[in-house]
């Protein structure tokens, strides 16, 4: 028995004793599996370290150089031919295998892509949206429409959809008098995808008649407004928009109130009129368009 091994064994005993005392002061292991594992690991670590260190110190003390010299020498410093260490060889071969696995499973074949993550996230979010909102009640549509409106429409139409003092259309009404006059004078060709024909300008040219029609349409086709009704007929408005402004499919929009089709058409085509221009909103999905259509139809009816 070498003296070094004795010193090593004493050192191990001292370390384990110190660990035991320290652990006891801290309250023992408390039957906790994690504590036990940690202590077991510490014991193994101390024993292995001490004996490995002892072995190599012994080797340095007793070993002498020997063996076959390699042909190469560097500034007269030679090197013995040593066999490849087995552990090194195993790790080397293992790394080659790991490289193949990493190439295929990790980078670059399966590399991370920010856009890929975005696409997955979007697809997941869209699928979740579809699943959650497949069938909506009228009230749910109204509420969803309100939130879509507040995000996308309110910056121009105002939080109350009142058009903020004429900065945009007041959506509590279908159409304002000024807008009717503008359309009669200039024609309209905004909603191309649904009403490809557009409306020609100057169907009415008499100022009094235009005023009468504007009042009649803007105030919701009051039956007692005889002058307005007469002007509406005189301008042949009724032949396309219908007697009470109910519109005609593919020819002329409904002008006596908002409905889902009209709102979705404006969202799709945008609009340009007496007040200014409105861009198309193609960022909304079908459910959101339906929701905001419901919301606008509801508030225009005062609901």
């Amino acid at each position: 028995m070498n003296k070094l091994y004795v010193v090593g064994a004493l050192f191990v005993a001292a370390m384990l004793g110190f660990t035991y005392v320290a652990m006891d002061i801290k309250g023992g292991m408390n039957g906790d599996i994690v504590n036990m594992l940690a202590i077991a690991g510490a014991v193994v670590l101390v024993i292995v370290s001490v004996f490995v260190v002892t072995k190599y110190v012994r080797q340095m003390q007793s070993d002498t150089a020997g063996g076959e010299l390699a042909e190469e020498n560097w500034d007269s410093i030679g090197e013995y031919k040593n066999p490849l260490p087995m552990g090194w060889a195993i790790i080397f071969l293992g790394l080659i295998v790991w490289a193949g696995w990493y190439f295929i499973v990790g980078y670059p074949v399966n590399a991370y892509s920010q856009i890929g993550e975005y696409n997955e996230d979007s697809a997941k979010a869209n699928a979740k949206f579809e699943e959650k909102y497949t069938s909506l009640t009228a009230e749910e549509l109204h509420n969803m429409g309100e939130s879509v409106f507040l995000v996308n429409c309110a910056p121009c139409h105002g939080l109350d959809a009142d058009g903020m003092n004429g900065k945009a259309a007041n959506l509590h009404k279908r159409i304002a008098e000024d807008s009717v006059k503008h359309v009669v004078n200039n024609g309209a060709n905004n909603l191309k995808t649904t009403f490809p024909g557009g409306m020609p300008p100057m169907l009415l040219q008499d100022k009094a008649q235009i005023d009468a029609v504007a009042k009649y349409v803007a105030n919701g086709f009051k039956a007692d407004d005889a002058a307005g009704k007469a002007a509406f007929t005189a301008g042949t408005c009724n032949s396309c928009h219908g007697e009470n402004g109910e519109g005609m499919p593919s020819v002329a929009p409904k002008i006596n109130g908002w409905d889902a089709e009209m709102v979705s058409t404006v969202l799709k085509d945008g609009k340009k009129g007496a007040i200014g221009a409105m861009p198309a909103f193609t960022n909304l999905n079908a459910t959101q368009v339906k929701a905001v259509s419901t919301y606008i139809t509801d508030i225009s009816k005062g609901e």
Partner: peptide, 20 residues
């Protein structure tokens, strides 16, 4: 894509008037 000439005009004059 989602704002117009007249909106910018109102907004640059008084941002709080269009965006409370």
């Amino acid at each position: 894509n989602y704002r117009t000439t007249d909106w910018h005009e109102n907004h640059m004059k008084d941002p709080a008037a269009v965006v409370p």
